[in-house]
């Protein structure tokens, strides 16, 4: 946790963010605690991806500002922002015929120049990123030939090779099966533990509560609640934010709050009761 609230490296100050004429969030103020694994949750179209795009400087607030390291993020040179904040976009495209190492190396772009394209530092950063994401053995393979889970790890490696303290993850687990989802969440936990500040948009509340250290719940473009998962994930809040009646019980393995939807009466089995 940061010492004083205003000292957070990345924060949003009463910003209005949206697309062209459509405003998604007004007077939005959010902080990303340093060295946290922050997860933004909320129903579809609540503005969580919009917030992430604002934090990544992909969207410019029409009022207010996004502050990075004490200055308006729009006052930096684009490459400077790219050396401090990384992004794993929701959809990326691997060029035809690209190998894993080549794709990971593309993450080094903000550190390179016209004549400085492949330094020792670049090589070290790429090796480390591939090791951290366990894709070293795939290094020379074509990205087209990989499975969905492997491919997503390669994209994470590319973002890691960028070597930024802060990493933004836009729905990183969406297209993966459950095993690869868990594998990826655990990879993020590892990265968080070695000092990365992570900000993820996730759909799965249980993953958010289990792996996140700081939750931001959004609805209709505004922040409804934020704080530690234990405080944020309550039955009342889930009903308020998602309109879903549910029971919140401790996850039997991790102890984090777990959301169990109540659903309609007939979805319950005869023998099951709840307090």
């Amino acid at each position: 946790m940061s010492a004083t609230p205003s000292a957070a490296r990345l924060r949003v100050e009463s910003a209005t963010i949206g697309y062209d004429k459509r405003t998604i969030s007004e007077h939005l103020s959010v902080e990303i605690p340093d060295e946290s694994f922050t997860v933004i949750v909320g129903p579809n179209a609540c503005g969580k991806s919009t917030l992430l795009r604002g934090l990544a400087r992909l969207l410019k607030p029409s009022a207010g500002q996004v502050v990075l390291d004490g200055a308006d993020i729009n006052s930096y040179k684009t490459k400077e922002v790219a050396r401090r904040v990384g992004l794993l976009p929701q959809s990326s495209i691997a060029p035809d015929g690209i190998t894993v190492a080549d794709l990971v190396a593309r993450g080094r772009y903000p550190h390179q120049g016209f004549l400085r394209q492949w330094t020792d530092d670049d090589e070290r950063a790429v090796l480390r990123a591939m090791r951290q994401t366990s894709v070293t053995d795939l290094s020379g393979r074509l990205v087209d030939e990989l499975s969905g889970g492997q491919r997503q790890r390669v994209w994470v490696a590319m973002a890691l090779a960028q070597h930024t303290g802060i990493m933004l993850l836009d729905e990183p687990t969406t297209f993966l099966d459950i095993t690869h989802q868990i594998e990826l969440m655990e990879l993020f936990t590892d990265l968080h533990q070695v000092g990365h500040t992570l900000v993820a948009v996730l759909h799965d509340l249980n993953h958010a509560a289990r792996y996140g250290t700081h939750l931001i719940a959004m609805k209709d473009g505004a922040v409804v609640a934020e704080g530690a998962p234990d405080q944020v994930v309550t039955a009342e809040l889930v009903e308020e934010v998602f309109g879903l009646r549910c029971l919140v019980v401790p996850d039997p393995v991790a102890g984090s709050p777990q959301v169990v939807p109540l659903g309609r009466d007939r979805t319950r089995r005869e023998s099951t009761t709840h307090a």
């Binding site: 990544a56 400087r57 992909l58 040179k77 684009t78 490459k79 400077e80 922002v81 790219a82 050396r83 904040v85 990384g86 992004l87 976009p89 929701q90 959809s91 990326s92 495209i93 691997a94 060029p95 794709l103 593309r106 993450g107 772009y109 903000p110 590319m158 960028q162 933004l168």
Partner: peptide
Amino acid sequence: LGDDAAASHG
């Protein structure tokens, strides 16, 4: 690599 990835690379 896509517009978002390129933008996030500066």
